[in-house]
Simulated scan of single mutants.
Amino acid sequence: MAFLQGPSLKQAEVMKQEWGEGLGDLERGVQDLQSMLAATPYLPDPGSVDTHLLGLFVRGCRMDLERARNKLESFFLSRSRFRDLYDNISLKDPPLSEVCKYMDIAPLPKVTDEGYRVTVFRLQENCFESSVEILHMVQAILLVSDIRMHDETLIAGDVFIWEISNLKPSLVAKLLASANTVRRSVYLAQAAYPQRMKRIHVVGARPVVTSVIQLMRSCVNEKIKRRYYIHAKAEELLEHIPARVLPKDLSGEEESIDTLARRWRHRSEELKDYLQNLKELCNATPAPIMDADIYGTVGAFRKLDID
Results as ranks from 00 to 15, higher is better:
176 L>A: 13
12 A>C: 02
20 G>P: 09
33 L>W: 03
140 A>R: 04
169 P>L: 01
271 L>F: 00
103 M>G: 06
138 V>E: 12
8 S>F: 03
228 Y>P: 14
43 L>V: 02
121 F>S: 05
99 V>K: 03
165 S>D: 15
156 A>H: 00
204 G>R: 03
51 T>H: 02
77 L>E: 02
221 N>T: 12
294 I>C: 11
221 N>A: 08
145 S>V: 08
288 P>C: 03
231 H>K: 09
207 P>W: 02
223 K>P: 07
118 V>H: 04
40 T>K: 07
41 P>C: 06
256 S>R: 07
110 K>Y: 09
76 F>N: 08
185 S>I: 00
143 L>A: 06
193 Y>H: 09
60 G>C: 15
31 Q>H: 11
112 T>N: 11
19 W>D: 05
281 L>W: 14
109 P>A: 11
82 F>G: 03
233 K>A: 14
123 L>Y: 12
195 Q>V: 10
101 K>L: 14
190 Q>W: 15
285 T>E: 15
120 V>W: 01
88 N>M: 02
143 L>S: 02
131 S>P: 10
132 V>Q: 09
211 S>N: 12
239 E>D: 04
67 R>P: 12
207 P>C: 08
121 F>P: 06
31 Q>R: 11
190 Q>V: 12
300 A>P: 12
306 I>C: 13
16 K>R: 13
197 M>S: 08
91 L>H: 12
99 V>P: 10
96 L>F: 06
274 Y>A: 02
251 S>F: 05
90 S>G: 13
34 Q>N: 15
109 P>Q: 06
113 D>I: 05
87 D>K: 11
287 A>H: 08
95 P>E: 00
278 L>T: 00
26 L>K: 07
18 E>I: 05
80 S>V: 08
282 C>R: 14
176 L>Q: 14
284 A>Q: 07
64 D>H: 01
277 N>E: 10
15 M>W: 01
69 R>P: 10
167 L>V: 14
287 A>W: 11
181 T>K: 04
67 R>F: 08
184 R>F: 09
229 Y>G: 05
85 L>V: 07
132 V>K: 04
135 L>T: 11
289 I>K: 10
208 V>C: 08
68 A>K: 01
39 A>L: 04
28 R>A: 09
115 G>R: 10
257 I>N: 01
112 T>Y: 03
10 K>A: 08
61 C>R: 02
259 T>G: 06
197 M>Y: 07
187 Y>R: 00
16 K>G: 11
146 D>A: 14
260 L>M: 14
87 D>F: 12
184 R>H: 12
300 A>R: 01
279 K>Y: 15
156 A>V: 00
74 S>G: 14
38 A>T: 14
24 G>Y: 06
124 Q>W: 10
92 K>W: 15
130 S>A: 11
28 R>E: 10
59 R>F: 04
